[in-house]
Design a binder for these strands. Sequence first.
DNA 1: TGGCTGACTTTCG
DNA 2: ACGAAAGCCAGCC
Length: 113
Amino acid sequence: MQPKITRKDYFQDVYEVVKLIPKGRVTSYGAIANYLGAKQGARMVGWALGHSHGVVDIPAHRVLNREGRLTGRLQFATPTLMQERLEAEGLIVESDRIKNWDDLFWDPAEQLI
DNA sequence: TGGCTGACTTTCG
DNA sequence: ACGAAAGCCAGCC
């Protein structure tokens, strides 16, 4: 049973989870939201990351939507920065979409095991 | 105080 | 299978 998430604690929680993402791995907003206990609050994760970029150094480029699509790439310093970083980690981006997304998908619950 | 928006997800048509 | 609409939570005007 996860504790209730409150306001700005969401930021800290999201940061923690995103930082825990192994290099070369990716996850989705819904997965993080589900891990935090707010499966319906996937938008909050994106919103938190949007305000986090530039404030703290977190690999936000490893967080995509459930389709493995780079939905938030426009929010980066440059529209291609997200793809560049992903490729730099050994990932392959094709048409704004991660290749082998299903295989590279990393679930925060896995780090609990 | 009330209402709109948003790096999403799920479901109905 | 594709398209459109609803749902949720928190911040901002």
